[in-house]
Protein backbone atom coordinates (compact mmCIF):
# COMPACT_ATOMS: atom_id res chain seq x y z
CA UNK A 1 0.00 0.00 0.00
CA UNK A 2 2.95 2.27 0.31
CA UNK A 3 3.93 1.72 -3.28
CA UNK A 4 1.36 3.99 -4.76
CA UNK A 5 2.32 7.58 -5.13
CA UNK A 6 0.67 10.00 -2.87
CA UNK A 7 -1.26 11.86 -5.48
CA UNK A 8 -2.25 9.81 -8.44
CA UNK A 9 -4.49 12.45 -9.90
CA UNK A 10 -3.09 13.73 -13.17
CA UNK A 11 -1.92 17.30 -12.81
CA UNK A 12 -4.20 19.91 -14.24
CA UNK A 13 -2.81 21.91 -17.06
CA UNK A 14 -2.10 25.37 -15.72
CA UNK A 15 -5.24 26.83 -17.21
CA UNK A 16 -6.02 29.09 -14.31
CA UNK A 17 -5.00 32.65 -13.88
CA UNK A 18 -4.84 34.24 -17.31
CA UNK A 19 -8.27 32.98 -18.27
CA UNK A 20 -10.78 34.70 -20.48
CA UNK A 21 -14.47 35.29 -19.82
CA UNK A 22 -15.16 31.76 -21.02
CA UNK A 23 -13.06 30.30 -18.24
CA UNK A 24 -16.07 29.24 -16.28
CA UNK A 25 -17.58 27.45 -19.22
CA UNK A 26 -14.33 25.70 -20.09
CA UNK A 27 -13.94 24.69 -16.52
CA UNK A 28 -17.48 23.38 -16.54
CA UNK A 29 -16.97 21.40 -19.71
CA UNK A 30 -13.81 19.92 -18.38
CA UNK A 31 -14.94 19.10 -14.90
CA UNK A 32 -18.69 18.66 -14.99
CA UNK A 33 -18.50 14.90 -14.58
CA UNK A 34 -16.17 15.13 -11.60
CA UNK A 35 -18.50 17.60 -9.99
CA UNK A 36 -21.46 15.42 -10.80
CA UNK A 37 -19.72 12.52 -9.13
CA UNK A 38 -19.03 14.40 -5.93
CA UNK A 39 -22.37 16.17 -5.88
CA UNK A 40 -24.23 13.60 -3.76
CA UNK A 41 -21.65 13.73 -1.03
CA UNK A 42 -21.43 17.49 -1.13
CA UNK A 43 -25.18 17.69 -0.68
CA UNK A 44 -25.15 15.18 2.15
CA UNK A 45 -22.31 16.97 3.88
CA UNK A 46 -24.01 20.30 3.47
CA UNK A 47 -27.34 19.13 4.78
CA UNK A 48 -26.22 16.75 7.48
CA UNK A 49 -23.06 18.36 8.73
CA UNK A 50 -22.68 21.97 7.73
CA UNK A 51 -26.20 23.08 8.30
CA UNK A 52 -26.24 21.50 11.79
CA UNK A 53 -22.78 22.89 12.42
CA UNK A 54 -23.87 26.41 11.63
CA UNK A 55 -26.97 25.92 13.72
CA UNK A 56 -24.83 24.58 16.54
CA UNK A 57 -22.61 27.63 16.42
CA UNK A 58 -25.69 29.83 16.40
CA UNK A 59 -27.20 27.98 19.36
CA UNK A 60 -23.97 28.47 21.28
CA UNK A 61 -24.54 32.23 20.97
CA UNK A 62 -27.97 32.03 22.59
CA UNK A 63 -29.16 30.93 26.01
CA UNK A 64 -31.38 28.15 24.69
CA UNK A 65 -32.49 25.53 27.21
CA UNK A 66 -35.48 23.24 27.30
CA UNK A 67 -37.43 25.66 29.45
CA UNK A 68 -37.05 28.74 27.27
CA UNK A 69 -37.21 26.95 23.94
CA UNK A 70 -40.90 27.39 23.23
CA UNK A 71 -42.29 30.82 22.43
CA UNK A 72 -45.45 29.99 24.30
CA UNK A 73 -46.35 27.26 26.73
CA UNK A 74 -49.68 25.59 26.21
CA UNK A 75 -51.60 23.58 28.72
CA UNK A 76 -54.11 21.09 27.41
CA UNK A 77 -57.04 20.21 29.55
CA UNK A 78 -58.28 16.66 29.71
CA UNK A 79 -61.82 17.95 29.24
CA UNK A 80 -60.79 19.57 25.98
CA UNK A 81 -59.45 22.98 25.23
CA UNK A 82 -56.01 24.45 25.46
CA UNK A 83 -54.69 27.51 27.23
CA UNK A 84 -51.56 29.11 25.90
CA UNK A 85 -49.48 31.69 27.65
CA UNK A 86 -46.43 33.46 26.41
CA UNK A 87 -43.22 32.06 27.80
CA UNK A 88 -42.07 34.72 30.25
CA UNK A 89 -38.39 34.00 29.66
CA UNK A 90 -37.99 33.20 26.02
CA UNK A 91 -34.53 32.37 24.74
CA UNK A 92 -32.44 35.18 23.37
CA UNK A 93 -29.19 36.00 21.68
CA UNK A 94 -26.51 36.52 24.27
CA UNK A 95 -23.39 36.85 22.18
CA UNK A 96 -20.29 35.27 23.59
CA UNK A 97 -21.58 34.99 27.15
CA UNK A 98 -21.54 31.21 27.03
CA UNK A 99 -17.93 31.16 25.96
CA UNK A 100 -16.96 33.65 28.61
CA UNK A 101 -18.77 31.66 31.28
CA UNK A 102 -17.34 28.34 30.19
CA UNK A 103 -13.79 29.51 29.70
CA UNK A 104 -13.71 31.52 32.91
CA UNK A 105 -15.00 28.51 34.84
CA UNK A 106 -18.21 30.24 36.00
CA UNK A 107 -20.29 27.43 34.57
CA UNK A 108 -19.30 23.80 34.40
CA UNK A 109 -15.82 22.40 34.67
CA UNK A 110 -14.46 23.01 31.21
CA UNK A 111 -10.80 23.14 32.17
CA UNK A 112 -10.98 20.10 34.37
CA UNK A 113 -12.73 18.19 31.60
CA UNK A 114 -10.13 19.34 29.12
CA UNK A 115 -7.30 18.21 31.36
CA UNK A 116 -8.94 14.83 31.91
CA UNK A 117 -9.63 14.51 28.19
CA UNK A 118 -5.99 15.17 27.38
CA UNK A 119 -4.73 12.71 29.98
CA UNK A 120 -7.25 10.17 28.80
CA UNK A 121 -6.32 10.62 25.15
CA UNK A 122 -2.62 10.63 25.75
CA UNK A 123 -2.74 7.66 28.10
CA UNK A 124 -4.83 5.59 25.77
CA UNK A 125 -2.96 6.39 22.58
CA UNK A 126 0.48 5.88 24.09
CA UNK A 127 -0.47 2.48 25.47
CA UNK A 128 -2.40 1.53 22.36
CA UNK A 129 0.56 2.27 20.20
CA UNK A 130 3.22 0.97 22.55
CA UNK A 131 1.51 -2.32 23.33
CA UNK A 132 0.30 -2.70 19.78
CA UNK A 133 3.82 -2.21 18.47
CA UNK A 134 5.32 -4.59 21.02
CA UNK A 135 2.84 -7.33 20.24
CA UNK A 136 3.18 -6.76 16.51
CA UNK A 137 6.96 -7.13 16.73
CA UNK A 138 6.58 -10.38 18.63
CA UNK A 139 3.96 -11.72 16.30
CA UNK A 140 5.99 -10.78 13.26
CA UNK A 141 8.48 -13.56 13.98
CA UNK A 142 8.00 -17.08 12.87
CA UNK A 143 7.25 -19.18 15.90
CA UNK A 144 5.13 -21.97 17.13
CA UNK A 145 1.50 -21.03 17.75
CA UNK A 146 1.68 -17.67 16.03
CA UNK A 147 -1.70 -18.02 14.37
CA UNK A 148 -3.36 -18.93 17.64
CA UNK A 149 -1.85 -15.98 19.48
CA UNK A 150 -2.95 -13.69 16.74
CA UNK A 151 -6.55 -14.87 16.93
CA UNK A 152 -6.63 -14.61 20.70
CA UNK A 153 -5.08 -11.17 20.74
CA UNK A 154 -7.49 -9.82 18.16
CA UNK A 155 -10.54 -11.06 20.07
CA UNK A 156 -11.18 -7.86 22.07
CA UNK A 157 -11.67 -6.02 18.81
CA UNK A 158 -14.50 -8.35 17.92
CA UNK A 159 -16.44 -7.27 20.98
CA UNK A 160 -18.57 -4.15 20.46
CA UNK A 161 -17.22 -1.26 22.52
CA UNK A 162 -20.33 -0.91 24.65
CA UNK A 163 -20.19 -4.59 25.58
CA UNK A 164 -16.54 -4.22 26.60
CA UNK A 165 -17.46 -1.21 28.67
CA UNK A 166 -20.08 -3.19 30.55
CA UNK A 167 -17.74 -6.13 30.99
CA UNK A 168 -15.04 -4.01 32.58
CA UNK A 169 -17.44 -2.08 34.73
CA UNK A 170 -18.64 -5.44 35.98
CA UNK A 171 -15.07 -6.52 36.67
CA UNK A 172 -14.20 -3.32 38.48
CA UNK A 173 -17.20 -3.42 40.80
CA UNK A 174 -15.74 -2.54 44.17
CA UNK A 175 -17.47 -5.19 46.23
CA UNK A 176 -18.40 -7.94 43.81
CA UNK A 177 -15.95 -7.48 40.97
CA UNK A 178 -13.34 -9.86 39.67
CA UNK A 179 -10.52 -7.29 39.87
CA UNK A 180 -10.78 -6.81 43.62
CA UNK A 181 -11.28 -10.48 44.30
CA UNK A 182 -8.09 -11.27 42.37
CA UNK A 183 -6.24 -8.61 44.35
CA UNK A 184 -7.56 -10.03 47.60
CA UNK A 185 -6.48 -13.52 46.68
CA UNK A 186 -3.01 -12.14 46.02
CA UNK A 187 -3.04 -10.65 49.49
CA UNK A 188 -3.47 -7.08 48.32
CA UNK A 189 -6.14 -4.84 49.79
CA UNK A 190 -9.11 -4.30 47.51
CA UNK A 191 -9.15 -0.91 45.78
CA UNK A 192 -12.09 1.48 45.87
CA UNK A 193 -11.77 2.04 42.15
CA UNK A 194 -14.36 4.74 41.70
CA UNK A 195 -13.69 6.59 44.93
CA UNK A 196 -10.64 8.33 43.53
CA UNK A 197 -10.31 10.37 40.38
CA UNK A 198 -7.17 8.60 39.19
CA UNK A 199 -8.11 5.02 39.92
CA UNK A 200 -11.47 5.73 38.34
CA UNK A 201 -9.85 7.12 35.22
CA UNK A 202 -7.54 4.14 35.32
CA UNK A 203 -10.48 1.74 34.96
CA UNK A 204 -11.66 3.62 31.90
CA UNK A 205 -8.21 3.73 30.36
CA UNK A 206 -7.68 0.02 30.98
CA UNK A 207 -10.97 -0.69 29.26
CA UNK A 208 -10.09 1.43 26.29
CA UNK A 209 -6.59 0.00 26.02
CA UNK A 210 -8.00 -3.50 26.12
CA UNK A 211 -10.36 -2.86 23.28
CA UNK A 212 -8.03 -0.65 21.24
CA UNK A 213 -4.73 -2.52 21.20
CA UNK A 214 -5.80 -5.17 18.65
CA UNK A 215 -6.49 -2.52 16.04
CA UNK A 216 -3.04 -1.01 16.46
CA UNK A 217 -1.44 -4.42 16.52
CA UNK A 218 -3.04 -5.57 13.31
CA UNK A 219 -2.37 -2.24 11.61
CA UNK A 220 1.30 -2.27 12.54
CA UNK A 221 1.66 -5.92 11.70
CA UNK A 222 0.29 -5.12 8.27
CA UNK A 223 2.77 -2.29 8.00
CA UNK A 224 5.68 -4.54 8.94
CA UNK A 225 4.81 -6.99 6.22
CA UNK A 226 5.40 -4.30 3.64
CA UNK A 227 8.96 -3.63 4.79
CA UNK A 228 11.21 -5.41 2.27
CA UNK A 229 13.04 -8.32 3.85
CA UNK A 230 16.23 -7.46 1.98
CA UNK A 231 16.72 -4.54 4.30
CA UNK A 232 16.87 -6.84 7.30
CA UNK A 233 19.19 -9.21 5.51
CA UNK A 234 21.57 -6.43 4.58
CA UNK A 235 21.50 -5.10 8.12
CA UNK A 236 22.25 -8.49 9.52
CA UNK A 237 25.22 -8.86 7.22
CA UNK A 238 26.43 -5.51 8.50
CA UNK A 239 26.19 -6.93 11.99
CA UNK A 240 23.32 -4.78 13.24
CA UNK A 241 21.83 -5.91 16.54
CA UNK A 242 18.13 -6.68 16.87
CA UNK A 243 17.56 -3.35 18.56
CA UNK A 244 19.40 -1.48 15.79
CA UNK A 245 17.38 -3.27 13.16
CA UNK A 246 14.22 -2.31 14.97
CA UNK A 247 15.22 1.32 15.31
CA UNK A 248 16.66 1.83 11.89
CA UNK A 249 14.49 -0.35 9.72
CA UNK A 250 11.23 -1.29 11.40
CA UNK A 251 10.35 2.06 12.90
CA UNK A 252 11.09 4.15 9.79
CA UNK A 253 9.33 1.58 7.67
CA UNK A 254 6.25 1.86 9.82
CA UNK A 255 6.10 5.63 9.65
CA UNK A 256 3.29 6.06 7.16
CA UNK A 257 1.09 3.53 8.91
CA UNK A 258 2.00 4.87 12.34
CA UNK A 259 1.20 8.44 11.41
CA UNK A 260 -2.23 7.48 10.21
CA UNK A 261 -3.16 5.21 13.09
CA UNK A 262 -1.90 7.68 15.66
CA UNK A 263 -3.88 10.50 14.12
CA UNK A 264 -7.00 8.37 13.87
CA UNK A 265 -6.46 6.92 17.32
CA UNK A 266 -6.11 10.35 18.83
CA UNK A 267 -9.26 11.67 17.24
CA UNK A 268 -11.24 8.55 18.09
CA UNK A 269 -10.08 8.48 21.68
CA UNK A 270 -10.67 12.19 22.13
CA UNK A 271 -14.26 11.70 21.05
CA UNK A 272 -14.71 8.29 22.66
CA UNK A 273 -18.07 8.55 24.35
CA UNK A 274 -19.20 5.11 25.51
CA UNK A 275 -16.28 4.13 27.73
CA UNK A 276 -16.38 7.04 30.12
CA UNK A 277 -20.15 7.25 29.90
CA UNK A 278 -20.67 3.60 30.78
CA UNK A 279 -17.64 2.59 32.87
CA UNK A 280 -16.99 5.44 35.28
CA UNK A 281 -20.17 7.44 34.65
CA UNK A 282 -18.01 10.42 35.51
CA UNK A 283 -17.58 9.22 39.09
CA UNK A 284 -16.39 10.27 41.57
CA UNK A 285 -18.47 13.44 41.60
CA UNK A 286 -17.95 14.19 37.91
CA UNK A 287 -14.17 14.15 38.20
CA UNK A 288 -13.61 11.69 35.35
CA UNK A 289 -15.94 13.39 32.92
CA UNK A 290 -14.36 14.14 29.55
CA UNK A 291 -15.45 16.90 27.19
CA UNK A 292 -17.71 14.74 25.06
CA UNK A 293 -19.59 13.17 27.95
CA UNK A 294 -19.79 16.52 29.71
CA UNK A 295 -21.35 18.12 26.64
CA UNK A 296 -23.80 15.26 26.32
CA UNK A 297 -24.88 15.57 29.94
CA UNK A 298 -25.31 19.33 29.56
CA UNK A 299 -27.68 18.80 26.65
CA UNK A 300 -29.66 15.77 27.73
CA UNK A 301 -29.59 15.74 31.52
CA UNK A 302 -30.56 18.23 34.18
CA UNK A 303 -32.00 21.47 32.82
CA UNK A 304 -30.89 20.49 29.33
CA UNK A 305 -28.85 23.48 28.48
CA UNK A 306 -28.65 23.17 24.69
CA UNK A 307 -26.68 26.36 24.25
CA UNK A 308 -24.09 25.31 26.80
CA UNK A 309 -23.71 21.90 25.15
CA UNK A 310 -23.22 23.56 21.78
CA UNK A 311 -20.61 25.83 23.28
CA UNK A 312 -18.71 22.78 24.49
CA UNK A 313 -19.08 21.24 21.05
CA UNK A 314 -17.59 24.27 19.31
CA UNK A 315 -14.71 24.32 21.76
CA UNK A 316 -14.03 20.62 21.28
CA UNK A 317 -13.98 21.05 17.55
CA UNK A 318 -11.59 23.99 17.85
CA UNK A 319 -9.20 21.93 19.94
CA UNK A 320 -9.23 19.14 17.39
CA UNK A 321 -8.70 21.52 14.51
CA UNK A 322 -5.73 23.13 16.18
CA UNK A 323 -4.30 19.72 16.93
CA UNK A 324 -4.64 18.50 13.37
CA UNK A 325 -3.13 21.70 12.04
CA UNK A 326 -0.03 21.18 14.12
CA UNK A 327 0.05 17.54 13.23
CA UNK A 328 -0.16 18.37 9.57
CA UNK A 329 2.54 20.97 9.81
CA UNK A 330 4.80 18.50 11.59
CA UNK A 331 4.21 15.97 8.86
CA UNK A 332 4.87 18.53 6.16
CA UNK A 333 8.17 19.42 7.72
CA UNK A 334 9.19 15.81 7.45
CA UNK A 335 8.23 15.72 3.84
CA UNK A 336 4.96 13.81 4.00
CA UNK A 337 2.24 15.00 1.76
CA UNK A 338 -1.03 14.76 3.52
Amino acid sequence: MTTVTADPAPPTPPSGRSARPSRLRRSWEKHWYAWAMVLPVVIVLAVLIFYPLVRGIWISLTNLTEANQAAEICTRSITGGEVCAENPNKWEFIGLDNYVNVLSGNVGDFWQWTAITLIWTLGCVVFHYGLGLGLAVMLNRPMWGRGLYRVLLVLPWAVPAFVSAFAWKFIFNERFGLANSLLTSLGIDPVDWFANQWTSLFTAIVTNIWLGVPFMMVALLGGMQTIPGELYEAAEIDGASAWQRFRNITLPGLRPVSMTVILLGTIWTFNMFPIIFLVTEGQPAGETEILVTGAFRAAFEGIRNYSLASTYGVLILSILLVFSMFYRRALRKQGEVW
Binding site: N173, E174, R175, F176, D192, F194, A195, S200, T280, Q283
Partner: peptide, 14 residues
Protein backbone atom coordinates in the same frame (compact mmCIF):
# COMPACT_ATOMS: atom_id res chain seq x y z
CA UNK B 1 -17.40 2.53 53.07
CA UNK B 2 -19.82 3.11 50.18
CA UNK B 3 -18.89 2.72 46.53
CA UNK B 4 -19.03 5.70 44.21
CA UNK B 5 -20.44 3.60 41.41
CA UNK B 6 -23.35 1.25 41.80
CA UNK B 7 -23.70 2.07 45.49
CA UNK B 8 -27.43 1.46 45.53
CA UNK B 9 -27.15 -2.01 44.03
CA UNK B 10 -24.25 -2.80 46.35
CA UNK B 11 -26.28 -1.71 49.34
CA UNK B 12 -29.19 -3.93 48.38
CA UNK B 13 -27.02 -6.93 47.56
CA UNK B 14 -25.16 -6.71 50.85
Amino acid sequence: KPSANDAYGTMMTL
